[in-house]
Simulated scan of single mutants.
Amino acid sequence: MLKVLLIGLWVCLVSIGGVYLSVRMSQSSAEAAAAPVPVVSTVVRGTPLSMPVIKNGAVEGYFLGRISLSVDAEKSKKVQLPMDVMLTDELFSLLMGNPMIDLKNVGGFDPEKFRTKIKEGLNSKLGDAVVMNVMIEQLDYMSKDTIKSNSERRGNPIPPQKIVEGTPVEATPAPSH
């Protein structure tokens, strides 16, 4: 009789210990899951762009630029279109469809607002926060008169008007789509 009572007590202790350990282990895995996972980003280097500035039905000049993106590597794998194509579309919308740059007052151009507009526009099209950062490598303006003058002068061309002095971005392999 005493043996049966001790075996019952031993089974209860083992059961309580097992429940206690399983609860402790589930809490530690929940804490590990709640810890922030570092976001791995990749750079999508934009293609050089030459966009005409059209006023009153005539070409006034050209925007010359290159803008790159830092994107979430995992989220960008789910994107169907190439990111550089989407970036080009967004730039055409901002520079031609809804002009953000007043060529008469280039000093009033806000690069941070421009970056934010690009980032928000692309993320809204993608439906997720894929774009993490926008990097302006080059954004210049060259008037039609300057281009004509440069074609006539062979030795000493007039440089384009700098809108933003950017920094080159190291190319990294873009995720395949």
Score class of each variant (00 low, 15 high):
Glu74Gln: 11
Phe109Leu: 15
Lys78Ala: 14
Val79Asn: 01
Gly127Leu: 02
Ser124Glu: 14
Val53Asp: 01
Asp102Val: 05
Leu122Asp: 00
Ala58Thr: 15
Thr88Val: 04
Val44Asn: 03
Lys77Ile: 03
Glu90Leu: 10
Thr47Ile: 07
Asp102Gln: 07
Gly65Cys: 12
Met83Lys: 01
Met142Tyr: 09
Ile54Tyr: 09
Met96Tyr: 09
Val43Cys: 12
Gly127Ile: 02
Ile118Gly: 01
Gln138Pro: 00
Glu74Met: 13
Glu112Leu: 13
Arg66Lys: 14
Asp140Asn: 13
Asp102Lys: 09
Thr116Ser: 13
Ile118Val: 15
Val37Ser: 03
Val71Thr: 08
Gly57Glu: 09
Pro82Glu: 09
Met96Val: 13
Leu139Lys: 05
Leu69Lys: 00
Val59Gln: 06
Val59Asn: 03
Leu139Ser: 02
Met132Tyr: 04
Phe114Ile: 05
Thr88Ile: 08
Pro52Asp: 07
Val40Gly: 01
Glu90Gly: 03
Leu103Ile: 08
Val59Glu: 04
Arg115Phe: 11
Ser50Ile: 05
Ser68Pro: 07
Asn98Thr: 11
Phe114Tyr: 12
Glu120Pro: 01
Met86Tyr: 03
Thr116Ile: 14
Tyr62Asp: 01
Met135Asn: 10
Val85Phe: 11
Ser76His: 06
Asp102Phe: 03
Met86Arg: 03
Ile54Pro: 10
Glu74Arg: 10
Gly97Tyr: 01
Val44Pro: 01
Val134Cys: 10
Met132Leu: 12
Asn133Arg: 15
Leu81Thr: 08
Asp89Pro: 01
Gly46Val: 00
Asp89Gly: 09
Met51His: 01
Pro52Cys: 04
Met96Pro: 03
Ala58Leu: 12
Gly121Ile: 09
